[in-house]
Design a protein around this nucleic acid. Structure first.
Lengths: 222, 222
DNA sequence: AAATGTTTGATTGTATACAATAATACACGA
DNA sequence: TCGTGTATTATTGTATACAATCAAACATTT
């Protein structure tokens, strides 16, 4: 590996620690554990059939990922996300997604561009049919394609990190009917990328996230 | 604590793990350990007088912070920073510093503004005298003030994270003679904040980081 | 009854023993 | 000599035992 990520992906799926980490992350994001709930080392260990050691190491990582909060000598608690946190995340994302779009404009490959076009086209279809599930799936994928096309592991990692929180937030809100409008905006971003206009693609991607946030607020996010 | 940080600061200075973590981070950032150097659990433990357990837990955190890279069943290696990483970091920072300046414009307190003015004033003095050490110190502090003034723990945490890398990079380059120009730009940002012009302050802070990067390149950063 | 001290149990923090893995050195045969 | 297989050793991965800490229940004193 010539180019090493600064923030390494936690991909050690075959160690117990890695499995505990992935599993706990999933469970927290899916809402299995409530906000503020206390996670006990032995209980988690027994549930997953491992000792406390790998559980503790996974805890340390989850703490740094921001999913749990460890109080020394007390315990580990699932962190909550405040309304302000959500706003901050979306505003930060808006800037970084803008940057990703700019870089994608400069580095996207033909294959990636093709997948993007396919994505937008397919989304249009599902929007007409009212398939919200598939629409959400395609929405996520569109952004991932853009991250990958940016050609920056650093930025990709940052944005994927934030995406975790977005997923958690979405769980708390009704899946809105923004799908079609969102897809239209995707199309605009894509066209700007195709036109090799970094200025425009950055601007549109930026606005896209702002719009998503405003939609969230309008839909009564607490 | 009503508002909880999403990404928790690692502040557990009184546990062995916390001390190992802080110490290793310092040593890596200061350059005591070279890029690619392998860190062995027992060796580190012996050096700090602790067993492997706290060392391992600290390793997991350092891995997520991106300072080391853990290869399963092999070892922990100090990560390197490529020229592209540096560029990516500066570009990402440029956007986030812009956002921080915007928010600072909206949320800065009188005390913070006063410290900022003092900072710029003092820096001007040291610039004239050619005190590079103090100038660099004040430079760092200026940005920290802005992070704090942004009123966003999320953003503050992100930017402080990146700052780590900036420090490492600076170690590798001659301390440039950019100090005075940098301070002039700080003054501009501050004036925009004072004038309550978020648009302008974001733009200036953004450009400030771009300039810093270009200076880095000009000064022959590899 | 209120406040304070004490005991007890549960939980985390750390050290250490043992298992699994990987790299190295070496022996052996083609 | 080269390549392959095997033994050895060092290192990480995991489990467990013990120490330190905290919280809650209980007792004691005023």
């Amino acid at each position: 590996m010539s180019e090493n990520d600064l923030k390494k992906e936690v991909t050690d799926k075959y160690s117990l620690r890695g499995r505990v980490f992935s599993r706990l992350r999933e469970d927290i994001l899916s809402g299995k554990y409530e906000e503020g709930e206390e996670l006990r080392e032995v209980a988690i260990g027994e549930e997953l059939g491992v000792s406390r050691t790998p559980v503790r190491e996974a805890f340390r990582q989850l703490e740094l990922e921001g999913l749990i909060r460890i109080v020394p000598n007390k315990g580990a608690y699932v962190t909550g996300i405040s309304a302000k946190d959500v706003k901050d995340i979306y505003m930060i994302r808006s800037r970084l997604e803008g940057l990703a779009a700019r870089w994608a404009t400069e580095h996207i490959t033909d294959e990636q561009l093709e997948e993007m076009e396919e994505n937008v086209y397919l989304a249009k279809f599902h929007a007409e049919k009212g398939h919200l599930e598939q629409l959400a799936e395609l929405d996520n994928r569109f952004h991932e394609i853009m991250y990958e096309a940016s050609g920056s592991k650093m930025l990709e990692h940052q944005l994927k990190d934030f995406h975790q929180y977005v997923i958690r937030v979405r769980k708390k809100t009704l899946s809105s009917a923004r799908g079609p409008k969102s897809n239209l905006e995707h199309e605009g971003i894509m066209e700007a990328i195709k036109a090799r206009d970094p200025e425009l693609s950055e601007k549109l991607a930026h606005e896209h996230i702002i719009n998503a946030y405003e939609n969230l607020v309008k839909n009564g996010f607490a």
